[in-house]
Simulated assay, not measured.
Amino acid sequence: MRRRPLARPVVRPAGAPLLRGALVGGVAYAAGRSAAKASRREQDQEQAIADLQYQQASQAPPRTAPVAPPPQAPAAPPSGGQAAGGLTEQLAQLGELARQGVLTPEEFAVAKARLLGG
Rank of each mutant, 00 (worst) to 15 (best):
R41H: 10
G25D: 10
G101C: 03
M1N: 08
G25A: 07
A22S: 09
A57N: 04
P74M: 06
V27C: 07
A76F: 06
A65P: 00
L116Q: 05
A92G: 02
A75T: 14
E106T: 08
L115F: 00
A16E: 15
A76M: 12
P66K: 05
S39R: 13
P71Y: 07
P5M: 10
A68L: 11
P62Q: 07
R63S: 08
P17Y: 07
Q53R: 15
A76V: 14
R40G: 10
G95A: 12
R41S: 12
A38H: 04
Q59P: 00
A92L: 06
Q100K: 01
L97C: 05
P61V: 06
P9M: 11
A76R: 05
P17N: 11
A75P: 14
L23H: 12
L23P: 03
A38Y: 08
A75E: 12
A50N: 04
P71W: 11
L87R: 02
V102T: 03
K37G: 11
R41W: 10
K37N: 14
A84S: 14
P5G: 14
A38M: 08
P17D: 13
Q100Y: 02
I49M: 05
A68F: 06
P78N: 08
A30L: 13
R63H: 05
L97D: 02
Y54H: 15
R33K: 02
L115K: 00
L116W: 00
L18E: 10
R63P: 09
P69N: 02
G21A: 14
E46S: 13
E96W: 09
A22R: 09
P70E: 08
G21S: 05
E46C: 10
A36S: 06
L6P: 07
L116R: 05
G86Y: 12
Q53F: 12
A98R: 07
P5K: 11
A48P: 06
R114P: 01
V27I: 08
Q72V: 15
Q43V: 09
A16M: 08
F108W: 01
R12F: 04
L103D: 01
A75H: 10
R3N: 15
E42C: 11
Q90H: 05
Q82D: 15
S58K: 11
R4L: 15
G80P: 10
R4V: 15
V10Q: 13
L97A: 12
G95W: 04
A30S: 01
Q56H: 09
T88M: 11
V11F: 12
A65C: 04
P5V: 12
R4N: 12
A28K: 10
L116G: 01
A28S: 03
A22G: 07
R20N: 08
R12G: 03
E107Y: 03
L19E: 10
G21F: 06
D51I: 08
G26Q: 05
T88G: 01
A50S: 03
P61C: 01
A16G: 06
A7E: 15
Q47A: 03
G80Y: 14
L115C: 05
L23A: 13
G86P: 03
Q93P: 02
Q93H: 08
G117N: 03
Q82L: 07
P69D: 05
R8W: 13
A35P: 02
V102G: 02
P66V: 04
L115H: 00
E96G: 04
K112L: 02
L94H: 00
L115M: 00
A73M: 08
V102Y: 04
P105V: 04
Q43C: 05
R20H: 14
P62Y: 04
